[in-house]
């Protein structure tokens, strides 16, 4: 108190430094501050290696990171909804909806219908997951794996249908460039913005966070946990389906292992983005930045010509050190 007063009566310059310090302090207090610093650092490293600080390099990485961020945000919602929750059906939802897009389940040119069907399947998978978890009390790690396998066998069965690139206006839009940004990056950012608002500015978002922090207290406060959990898993399923839709269209082709890389990537992005894996605190922006750290780190390691073993070790260290940092800063150290 007294210190504040002293500053208040101080000179104008002191005042302005004080404001600056405050902004910096606020920034540093954000859960994603470390990840953002990581992005800048990795970008500069790439700049030093290649000899120029390339904007298009950053955008190219952000484009891929945007796709990872969709998977990351889906996983973040599930992780934060309560300790022990995880969505292992993620890669299968991604792959299945990609096949729905390109195998033309509803006819090859019915893009809107295919998107709708994909989203529906994603939502349904989320709902089935919650039914297994809440009604049958199966742990999320088992329930989501089981529903994932079912979806995988469905994928295998529609895999034989003749598929072709989605193409057309939709592909052109995702690959187009607007003010230096790629179409797919803008679409991903818009989806993430909507989720960000949903989680931070709505009643659902409040209840979701309350449940993640302490499920019992949330219940006593009148939160209907089953329904909030349903909303969370459906949200995750829809995000995964949208990722599949974007991948099938942007990449121009699908394969049965399309979603594989996104499971581990999704968890890593969440952790690096500063979300506590134990639940209750989330940041869509943080997860997006976390995804960008992952892709930039990968690109830097390629640019630096590190051997693949070293690459894996460094990536593991990045995730591990962020977890340690987050754990050290969280108030409830055990």
């Amino acid at each position: 108190m007294t210190r504040k007063a002293q500053f208040a009566v101080g000179s104008v310059t002191l005042m302005s430094t004080n404001v600056g310090v405050k902004i910096w302090r606020n920034l540093l207090r954000k859960s994603w501050a470390g990840a953002l610093a990581g992005v800048v650092l990795l970008w500069v490293i790439a700049g030093l290696v290649t000899g120029e600080l390339s904007w298009s390099f950053l955008i190219a990485n952000a484009t891929i990171a945007g796709l990872f961020a969709l998977a990351g945000t889906a996983q973040m919602a599930v992780l934060a909804s309560g300790s022990g929750n995880i969505d292992l059906s993620l890669p299968y939802v991604v792959t299945f909806s990609a096949y729905v897009m390109s195998a033309g389940v509803l006819g090859q040119d019915n893009v809107a219908g295919s998107v709708l069907l994909s989203v529906l399947v994603g939502a349904l998978t989320g709902a089935v997951n919650v039914a297994l978890i809440v009604r049958l009390r199966i742990p999320a790690i088992v329930a989501t794996l089981a529903s994932g396998y079912i979806l995988y066998s469905l994928t295998v069965s529609i895999q034989n249908w003749p598929s072709k690139p989605v193409g057309g206006m939709f592909e052109a839009m995702l690959r187009a460039r607007f003010a230096g940004l790629t179409g797919v990056l803008i679409v991903a950012a818009l989806i993430l913005a909507v989720v960000g608002v949903l989680l931070s500015r709505t009643v659902f978002g409040l209840q979701f966070h309350a449940m993640g922090q302490n499920a019992e207290v949330a219940r006593l406060a009148g939160v209907r946990r089953g329904w909030v959990l349903l909303g969370t898993f459906v949200l995750a399923g829809v995000l995964e389906a949208l990722l599949g839709v974007l991948l099938a269209t942007y990449q121009g082709g699908v394969s049965a292992d399309l979603g594989r890389a996104y499971l581990l990537g999704s968890v890593a992005a969440v952790v690096i983005g500063g979300t506590r894996p134990t639940g209750g605190v989330t940041s869509v922006f943080g997860t997006a930045v976390g995804a960008l750290v992952l892709t930039l780190a990968q690109s830097d390691l390629i640019l630096l010509n590190f051997g693949i073993g070293t690459q894996y070790v460094i990536q593991g260290l990045i995730v591990l050190s962020t977890v340690c940092l987050v754990a050290a800063r969280s108030p409830d150290r055990r």
């Binding site: 390339s54 891929i64 640019l303």
Partner: peptide
């Protein structure tokens, strides 16, 4: 430049996309 595509179309595309500007 050398990247690992994991024998996976999608991974190969990701890695090439990100290093392409360099």
């Amino acid at each position: 430049s050398t990247v690992y595509g994991d024998w996976n179309q999608s991974v190969a595309q990701q890695h090439v996309t990100t290093i392409l500007p360099t």
